[in-house]
Design a protein around this nucleic acid. Structure first.
Length: 276
DNA sequence: ACTGTTACCTGATTGC
DNA sequence: TGCAATCAGGTAACAG
């Protein structure tokens, strides 16, 4: 269920604990998740030093010595467990990596919509999963002008456009709803029809929404690792997602509350009174 | 080329 | 209580 902020928090926690350590053991519990794992993955991981981490959209990149990177996607149900030393068996733990620093890294993903690949770090931009991704919404290249240009090409609703990773890399179903609420824009508007004022509000709202969630993730537990070893998950106070009452409108007399609609098979939450 | 739908999986929740 | 239907934070393959 991870979107950009959760993946970012995972990456920060991994970087804090694992950089500089060497992989002393690796195990794959099954040959595939969404796609086949790289051939002989455990053997190819063993002995490598972990040099760094990077996030791109909702992907995690673990930079390894030898010029390769492990590419991970958590899908809908993926989690990273990080525990000290030996650990009890965990259901759906498909990949385990142990380091000489005494950490045990586990990729847990019941639905197996996630993925694992190994790529040449120098060629990472050309990887099929990463080429074609849109701008990082928290990066300096993400400007109102760029967002406007990308949305101008889309005849879908703005909500559907925001879920397209070629438009904004890393937004998912929750943060798309949250960003539109913050921008006071109806999710039913056609993307290409947004004017400059709404584009400007949406751009600011996306950045503010994601930045606040990243900050909440980092501050919600020390060292980013929760007591149960889970990385990167945190309770965040959604404004509209999963809620019935609008947190801003004065009350039932003025506002009938948050409405749920289905767009492209995904549930959207919004306040019809505030979002136009 | 663009858009909307379907499929991939398991587990939690809802409704009868 | 039990069981079936529904839904879940993603995305790629497909059909039109």
């Amino acid at each position: 269920m991870p979107e950009l902020p959760e993946v970012e928090t995972v990456v920060r926690g991994l970087a804090l604990q694992l950089i500089g350590q060497r992989i002393v053991a690796a195990r794959a519990a099954r040959p595939d998740l969404r796609w086949p794992l790289p051939a002989r993955l455990p053997e190819r991981l063993k002995g490598r030093r972990i040099e760094g981490f990077k996030r791109r959209a909702k992907y995690i990149l673990m930079r390894l010595s030898g010029g390769e990177s492990l590419l991970l996607h958590l899908g809908m149900s993926g989690r990273i467990l990080l525990v000290r030393g030996a650990a009890l068996p965990v259901a759906h733990e498909h990949l385990v990596i142990e380091t000489d620093g005494g950490w045990r890294f586990g990729l847990v993903d019941p639905r197996r919509f996630g993925s694992v690949d190994l790529l040449r770090t120098a060629e990472e931009e050309r990887h099929p999963r990463l080429a074609g991704l849109g701008p990082e919404p928290l990066g300096s290249g993400f400007t109102p002008a760029l967002l406007g240009a990308l949305l101008a090409k889309r005849r879908t609703t703005v909500k559907a456009a925001l879920l397209d990773q070629r438009v904004v890399a890393g937004l998912g179903n929750i943060y798309a709803s949250e960003s539109l609420f913050r921008a006071r824009i109806s999710p039913r508007r056609i993307a290409a029809g947004l004017g400059a004022r709404r584009i400007g509000r949406l751009h600011a709202a996306i950045r503010e929404t994601l930045a606040a969630a990243v900050a909440a993730g980092g501050s919600s537990f020390s060292d980013y690792v929760q007591p149960d070893g889970e990385l990167g998950y945190f309770q965040h106070a959604w404004q509209v997602y999963g809620r019935a009452r609008c947190p801003v409108c004065p009350g039932p007399r003025a506002c009938r509350g948050v409405v749920q609609i289905v767009q492209g098979g995904r549930t959207t939450y919004y306040c019809p009174r505030l979002q136009r």
